Amino acid sequence: TEDEKKIQELLKRANGDVSKAEKLAQSQGNEELARRLREYANK
């Protein structure tokens, strides 16, 4: 999905570090994506 692409892109930029990727999403003002990242990471 589009969200998964965004999540994978963020994870790439954060070198696979979920908490960093989450902070990136939040810094972009994207709380929804940050929440999805957390769920994605907890799979």
Rank of each mutant, 00 (worst) to 15 (best):
R38C: 11
A41G: 09
A41V: 13
E32F: 05
K23S: 08
L37H: 00
L33G: 00
K5F: 11
E32P: 04
I7F: 10
G29L: 04
V18F: 14
S19E: 13
E4R: 09
Y40V: 09
E39N: 03
N42E: 15
G16M: 06
Q28K: 04
K12A: 14
L11H: 02
Q8W: 12
S27G: 08
L24K: 03
Q26M: 14
N42Y: 08
Y40D: 05
G16I: 02
Q8E: 12
Q26S: 09
E31W: 14
R13P: 02
E4C: 15
R36V: 06
N15K: 10
E22F: 04
L11E: 02
K20H: 07
S19G: 10
L33Y: 03
Q28T: 10
E9Y: 01
E39F: 02
E39Q: 05
T1H: 12
Y40N: 06
N30S: 07
R13S: 12
R13H: 11
A25S: 01
A41N: 08
L33R: 00
L24A: 05
E31G: 08
K6M: 15
T1C: 15
G29N: 06
R36T: 05
R35I: 07
K12I: 10
N30H: 09
A21C: 07
L10F: 09
A34H: 01
L10E: 03
R35Y: 02
K20I: 14
D3G: 07
N15M: 08
K5D: 10
A41S: 07
E32C: 07
K6G: 07
Y40F: 10
T1W: 14
S27M: 14
R36Y: 05
L11V: 07
I7L: 14
A14L: 06
N15I: 03
D3Y: 15
I7Q: 01
E2W: 11
S19Y: 10
L24S: 04
R38T: 04
N15T: 03
Q8T: 10
K43Y: 10
V18M: 06
L37G: 00
D3P: 06
D3L: 15
D3N: 10
S19W: 07
K43F: 11
E32I: 06
N42Q: 13
A21E: 01
N15A: 09
R13Y: 11
E39G: 01
L11F: 00
R13Q: 15
L24F: 06
K12F: 06
R38Y: 03
L10C: 08
K12M: 12
L11W: 00
A25K: 00
L37V: 11
E32A: 07
K23H: 10
E2L: 12
